[in-house]
Simulated assay, not measured.
Amino acid sequence: MATDGILNVYKPVGPTSFAVVARLRRLLRLRRIGHAGTLDPLASGVLLLLLGRATRLSCYLQALPKTYRVGAYLGKATTTYDEEGEVVWEADPWGIDEGAVHKALAEMTGRFLQQPPSYSAVKVKGKPAYVYARSGQSVQPPPRWVEVYRFQLLEFRLPELFLEVECSQGTYVRSLVHELGLKLGCGAYVRWLMRTAVGPFTVEESIPLSLLEEEIGRAQWSHRLLPLDAGLSYMLAISLGPEEVAAVVNGRPICRPGDGERARAYGPDGALVAILRWDPQQGLWRPETVFAP
Rank of each mutant, 00 (worst) to 15 (best):
A100L: 13
L176W: 01
Q137A: 14
V139C: 12
D40G: 04
L49N: 07
V139Y: 09
E86P: 04
Q137D: 13
G71P: 01
E164F: 12
Y68V: 04
Y81M: 12
Q62M: 15
L51A: 12
E98A: 08
A106S: 14
L64H: 15
V173N: 00
L74T: 09
A121V: 02
Q115C: 12
L48K: 11
Y132R: 08
G52W: 03
A63P: 09
P128F: 13
K66I: 07
S58Y: 09
G45W: 12
D40T: 06
Q140E: 15
A63L: 05
P143W: 15
C59Y: 07
L105E: 04
A129L: 09
G75N: 11
Q62E: 15
P128G: 08
A100I: 08
S118K: 13
S135L: 11
Y172I: 01
L176M: 11
S44G: 08
A129E: 06
L42K: 12
Y172N: 01
R56C: 04
S44A: 14
E160A: 06
Q115D: 11
A133Q: 11
P141K: 11
R69N: 01
A106P: 07
L113H: 07
Y149G: 01
L50Y: 12
R144T: 00
V88Y: 07
E160N: 04
T171D: 04
A129T: 07
L42H: 10
S168T: 00
L39N: 00
R134S: 06
F151G: 00
L61A: 07
A133I: 04
D82Q: 09
V173T: 02
L57A: 07
V87C: 10
L161C: 05
A91K: 11
P142Y: 03
V124F: 01
V101M: 06
R157W: 00
Q115S: 13
L163D: 01
Q137R: 15
G110V: 13
W94I: 10
S175H: 08
F151W: 08
L74Q: 03
E179W: 09
C59R: 15
V101D: 05
V46T: 08
H178L: 01
Y132V: 05
F112L: 03
V148N: 02
E147L: 11
W145Q: 12
K103M: 05
V177N: 01
T171A: 02
G99L: 09
L163R: 00
K66R: 15
P93W: 06
W145H: 10
K76T: 10
L154G: 01
V139S: 11
A104M: 07
R174D: 03
C167G: 03
T55H: 13
G170M: 05
L161P: 03
K125F: 04
L47N: 07
L105A: 07
A72E: 08
D82F: 05
L47A: 11
T55V: 14
A54W: 14
P159M: 06
E107D: 15
V146P: 00
V131S: 06
Y60H: 15
P93S: 05
